[in-house]
């Protein structure tokens, strides 16, 4: 247990935190990030708020909330997709540039710790950016349509995706081409419809057959909940009049078939990202040391070569 703790939390992390926060670049990066994301959030919020002024019903508001959320989360993903690989690629190559890599390799730290320390330190900064965006995402709750667990899972997917891109983007494992192309991976995923359900937004097709079922106690408030075609209740009950439009269907976020059948898209995405990360991490740890002692082949100097050089010309 102690060994694992040492491997995960090591001096490199502490040193990186310290030196990263001592430059003006970190606060500048945070400010720019917040301005970009906040600017987009504000633009969408104000356009939707003005169109919602005339007529607002809960359904429309939910729709606004969902589209604001989608814009923000996708934009955030794009930003992080570019930022995280830049952070991690710099982490390892800056050590090589300063020529401090050898100095770390002659210490007691195993190569995995060095790699992990550098990656963890630079990815914590990506997580910090993610955390900074929480207040901007709170705009969504003015409209509704997104629940807290959806926001949490969306953040989780973004964090894991950023982590994976960071690991793939770090120099030791990837040839430069992949590093520069890696931001494209989430863009491609976003381009496909999967990511939207992957982010857990429940925007399936309307169901005509479902409706609302309401009940009221004598004189008390009326309690309604949406129902599916077979009359089964869906989602949370609410107090008040049922809206005039059919309820959103809450299906479409789980995978219908295949290896991950029955899983939510976001769960499957996280598992896939994590597997890719783990593979990339292992490859990196093997490739990083100056003397690559692969577990399956520790090299010994061949005796024939020894003999040859031993009797070689000696001035």
């Amino acid at each position: 247990m102690n060994r694992i703790a040492v491997a995960l939390w090591n001096p490199i992390v502490e040193k990186e935190y310290r030196s990263r926060m001592r430059t003006w670049r970190s606060p500048a990066a945070m400010t720019v990030y917040i301005l970009l994301l906040g600017g987009l959030g504000w633009a969408i919020f104000s356009s939707e708020a003005s169109s919602a002024q005339n007529s607002l019903n809960p359904g429309q508001a939910a729709g606004f909330g969902q589209s604001l959320f989608l814009w923000l989360i996708i934009f955030q993903m794009v930003l992080l997709a570019f930022i995280t690989p830049a952070l991690t690629a710099g982490a390892i190559s800056s050590e090589r540039e300063r020529q401090t890599m050898d100095l770390l390799f002659v210490t007691r730290l195993p190569p995995f710790s060095i790699l992990w320390g550098k990656l963890l330190a630079s990815m914590s900064f990506a997580l910090l950016l993610l955390l900074l965006s929480v207040p901007i995402f709170s705009l969504v709750f003015l409209f509704g349509g997104i629940e807290l667990d959806q926001l949490a899972s969306a953040f989780l997917v973004t964090a894991v995706a950023a982590l994976t891109l960071g690991i793939i983007g770090s120099k030791p494992v990837a040839p430069p081409a992949i590093t520069y192309l890696s931001p494209l991976i989430p863009l491609i995923t976003i381009g496909m419809n999967q990511s939207i359900s992957g982010y857990g937004v429940r925007n399936g097709p309307f169901v005509g057959s479902g409706g609302y079922s309401c009940s009221s106690n004598n004189g008390g408030p009326q309690v309604c909940y949406a129902t599916a075609a077979n009359g089964a209740p869906i989602g949370k009950a609410f107090v008040g009049q049922p809206p005039s439009y059919p309820p959103f269907q809450q299906s479409g976020t789980s995978i219908p078939s295949g290896l991950f059948a029955g899983w939510q898209y976001w769960q499957a995405s996280i598992v896939e990202w994590l597997v890719v990360s783990a593979i990339a991490l292992v490859i990196s740890a093997l490739l990083l040391p100056p003397v690559r002692r692969l577990p399956w082949g520790r090299r010994h100097p061949s005796p024939s070569l020894l003999g040859e050089t031993g009797s070689g010309p000696n001035a």
Binding site: N10, E14, S19, R108
Partner: peptide
């Protein structure tokens, strides 16, 4: 040299001492 710019001399030695456990 292999030095880290953002650290003080004391922190620098402390970092390597930590690396040597």
């Amino acid at each position: 040299f292999g030095v880290y710019d953002q650290l003080t001399a004391g922190e620098y030695l402390d970092f390597y001492a930590a690396c040597y456990r």
